[in-house]
Structure formats: C-alpha cells, structure tokens
Simulated assay, not measured.
Amino acid sequence: MLQKLLLENILFLDIETVPEVADYDELDDVKKELWEHKSQYQRKEEFTAEEFYDRAGIWAEFGKIICISVGYFHIKGDKREFRVTTFHGEESKLLKDFKNLLNTHFKYPKNLLCAHNGKEFDFPYIARRMIIHRINLPYKLDLFGKKPWEVPHLDTMELWKFGDYKHYTSLKLMANILGIPSPKEDIDGSMVRDVYYGEKDLERIITYCELDVVTTAQVFLRLRNEELLVDAEIKKI
C-alpha cells in the first residue's frame, strides 16, 4: 500500500530533453541515415526524416538532457515542506551531479525514485545518457539482475493504470481529474526545443520542469488520499 511508504524516502523527478543538435543539417551523413531508420515507424510517410527531426529529443540516442528537476519532502512534526531544485548546464556535469545526489542522500534501500511515465521515459533515458557519457550507473538506475519487486522506481502513471497496460494518461490530465490546481505553465513539452535553441531561455524550461515535479508529488499525495501541498509548503532551493 502506498500509505506505508514514507514520503521522505521518495525522490520525485522530471527531465527535459531536446535534440542533441539544433538542426538536422548539423548531423553527419551516418547519423542522418541512422535517424532515418530509427524514426521510420513513427513518422511513416507523413514526414521526411528532416521534417521529423524536431522530435529527436524523445530518443536518448539522438537527444540530450538539458535539466533534471528533483523534489523531496522534509517533514518535522506537523510541518511539511516540499523542496525543489534543478540540475542543469552541460549534460555530462548535470548527470554526474544527479548521480552524486543518488549516491549520497538517496542511496539506501528504502529510497525510491518517482516520476510520471518514469519507467518508460525518465529512468531509462537518464541511464542511457549516462552510459553514452561513460558514467557508471548509480545503484538506483542499474536494473541488471534485479527482480521486479527490487526495482526502486515508482511511476504515477503506472499506479493509475491498475494493471491496464493499454492505458496512457498524461500528467496534466491526471492533475485535472484529481482536482489538483493547474500550475501556471507558459510552455508545454512540444515547445521545449524552440525555447532552448531558439529563445535560449533555459530558466523558462527549468521553471516548467520544476512545476511538473510538484504536480507529480501532488498526484502521488492524491493517490494516497492525503492533503495537497499548498504554496507555502513548496520551497525552491
């Protein structure tokens, strides 16, 4: 039961990704051919590989992480805080900084990672990019040999499925149906590439990413039938 988990043992997270380079023309010929094959099923005959390149950030082989936002609960007596921070900058460094957090404050067996659609996207994407950068995987992301019940990952979308593997529900939809106030976001995921490469406004993306972390934590609280966080309980550090 979710109620048995201590909130302070959970690290909530979200990542934002973009294509590894700004434009398709910046890819070498080999990478262009590989991209054409990789994207063939998704784009079908509707788009050329070049036209489809703005979605390359979805795949870890052709994208990169530009920020990882994390949040965790700090509870003392009847006072509750949800502390949020973001790793950003050069990808190799932000991955190493995130790994350091996992290997220090969230290294124990009781500690869990939680993201929305994290098992399909965030967790494997981070692991793949670490391997690409020759960073040894932290225990929380190294799943080799682990039994399903030993994997230290929670996924709010998976929790909402209740065993229905065909069901996809966005974080925004879950927040709406569970009565969670919509965060004041001025962008969505489809805009991240243009904001990053066109407007060069990383801070705007970080704000969006952090709001999604807060919303994920709010969804988790509702799944436990607990009171939602209020603004005064959310602290950026």
Rank of each mutant, 00 (worst) to 15 (best):
V21W: 05
E20V: 07
D25K: 14
I68N: 02
G179F: 02
G198W: 09
F121W: 01
F162K: 06
Y108L: 13
E199K: 13
M1L: 11
D194H: 10
I205F: 10
M130T: 13
L7M: 02
N176F: 11
G179Y: 08
I15P: 08
E26T: 06
H88W: 10
K172T: 08
E50C: 01
L229T: 02
E36Y: 13
D14R: 12
A127R: 05
A60P: 09
I206L: 04
A56C: 01
E26L: 10
E90W: 02
E26G: 05
I66Q: 00
R204M: 05
W59Q: 06
Y125W: 06
H116E: 01
A127W: 00
G163H: 03
H37P: 09
E33M: 00
P183E: 12
M191C: 11
Y24F: 12
A60C: 09
F62T: 11
F12D: 00
A60N: 08
T215M: 15
F220W: 05
E199P: 10
V84G: 04
K93F: 14
R134Y: 03
M174C: 04
Y197L: 13
H105R: 15
R128S: 15
K119H: 07
E20L: 05
R204Q: 05
D188F: 06
T169H: 00
L223G: 04
I126D: 03
E33S: 07
W149L: 12
K166A: 13
L171Q: 03
K4G: 10
W35K: 05
L95A: 13
L223C: 07
I187N: 06
I205L: 06
I234G: 02
K147N: 12
R204Y: 08
W149Q: 13
K236D: 06
W149I: 10
V192R: 03
K32V: 14
R43M: 04
M130K: 08
D194E: 14
Q3K: 06
D164F: 04
K184T: 06
F144E: 15
D194S: 07
T215E: 14
G145Y: 03
R222Q: 12
N136G: 15
K147S: 09
P183M: 14
V151S: 11
I68V: 00
M191P: 07
G63I: 10
G77L: 00
M157Y: 04
I187L: 00
